[in-house]
Design a protein around this nucleic acid. Sequence first.
DNA 1: ACGCAATCTGTAATTTAATTACAAGATATC
DNA 2: GATATCTTGTAATTAAATTACAGATTGCGT
Lengths: 285, 285
Amino acid sequence: MNVLEKIVNSVNSFSKSERKVADVILANPQTTIHSSIAALAKMADVSEPTVNRFCRRLDTKGFPDFKLHLAQSLANGTPYVNRHVEEEDGPEAYTAKIFESTMAALDTARQRVDINTINRAVDVLTQAKKISFFGLGASASVAHDAQNKFFRFNVPVVCFDDIVMQRMSAINSAEGDVVVCISHTGRTKNLCDIAAIARENDATVIGVTAYDSPLAKECTLVLSLDVPEDTDMYMPMASRVAQLVLIDILATGFTLRRGSKFRENLKKVKDSLRGSRFDKKDFNN
Amino acid sequence: MNVLEKIVNSVNSFSKSERKVADVILANPQTTIHSSIAALAKMADVSEPTVNRFCRRLDTKGFPDFKLHLAQSLANGTPYVNRHVEEEDGPEAYTAKIFESTMAALDTARQRVDINTINRAVDVLTQAKKISFFGLGASASVAHDAQNKFFRFNVPVVCFDDIVMQRMSAINSAEGDVVVCISHTGRTKNLCDIAAIARENDATVIGVTAYDSPLAKECTLVLSLDVPEDTDMYMPMASRVAQLVLIDILATGFTLRRGSKFRENLKKVKDSLRGSRFDKKDFNN
DNA sequence: ACGCAATCTGTAATTTAATTACAAGATATC
DNA sequence: GATATCTTGTAATTAAATTACAGATTGCGT
């Protein structure tokens, strides 16, 4: 509970002078956080220790600490919460909700992701002879994205969103190859098969999927994001964003692991794009 | 701009000692707001006046005022700041940084996106005879994702990442068709051409791209996200996540606009997926 | 209604924290 | 290599907050 609410709630348990302080603070919270205890005492027409006691009553260490708490209550920021879009929401409302839900999802993903597994995944990827990204449906675009990223590293990368191609690719995999299977639910049958086949052929299989899912059971390494989203009911949104960020992290880990001289490669790829683009400065002609 | 961002942004203009202070604060922002100037100075291994000067440089009145501002920045629980990954970062550090940068990017995107334009874009999309999503490179996967989403709405949707196909598709477009061109920089020549061609053929062209870019000039409607990211130098990460969220928003707006009876369609699509998946409960057999 | 106890409240002293002034050191510039 | 500019730290000063204590107020039982 934030301090402002707390003040309102406990307004009854205040003494006369404390209430004066509360009134002044509630009336000018912004002014309060930039005032000294003396100024506030004067505004409320009480003594300084009274203000101090008021602060303590609200479970803060003293006046400065109270101001800190108050400042946080006043911070414009909306707490990032998962809010479902409602039927009657206007553009403003659903835009805000989707942004916030996505940010909330990333926040939980960040807290739950296992750094060790990431590190091991990066290990495996840097040593891979060939990397394959497989996904179906919404996860297919994540796989594409991953290909786009890792492709720049001058490593053999493939990406299929076609189960037949995936199957062929999986069958042809060998030791040293890495197969990354992407699925939010981890319950897509075809992808489980692919993972199993790849493993039978000695490939290392990294699953970007839910813990404890059928797909996870087929994988060598499971990167679970644990984003709360029921993709059986709703369209995959936040979950897929979290997957993308995970791919970004793996790609970043990859470049860092490979050392600085390798990063010249990246520059080369970038430079090659220049020809296909308008110049940054003078595109107004 | 919040203080944390400010610190990150002006890290170059800091002196050696000020930088030490910045590092300590960025590493433990929560601790900082509960520390005295003496404690912080000790942590950063600098003198107290240095800390004070640091605060002043950030346009605050002094240390207590700085703490107030910092508290407000942290009010949302997590400091969402754009922090660049450094050479010597370990898995823990770069994972945190990428998550945070992405969230920070979404936060700015949310603030800068124009709701009116979103609303108009949704308008246009709901009335479209056919919707095409075009993107190249990293934006291609965003286009794919968009297709995957809009496809569920039982609207004719196409998506090409091949310039020849894009071109053909653009030439064949007609009034009532909507073409969505996705490009972070808006300086990809080929995509500008596509947009121009589509417009010449009376299609409505929505650009998911930078304001004032060459591509924007070719579009009927520009959805600008304004995520600070130099994709000429680095890989597109946060920018692309923001694009995806924008697509989510458009898709959501679309379903809301179409009314409730239309949403039964979505359920049908979902149900059709069930056969391809293991059941939610008993996948352990 | 009176007196005792408990609770408030304010004054003044104390402590703590933050800021300023100044000087020494480092760095850049010519 | 000398001078000027910018950094940084030490010590002194000032400002702010807290504590200790005493006076005032309120509530309660007789």
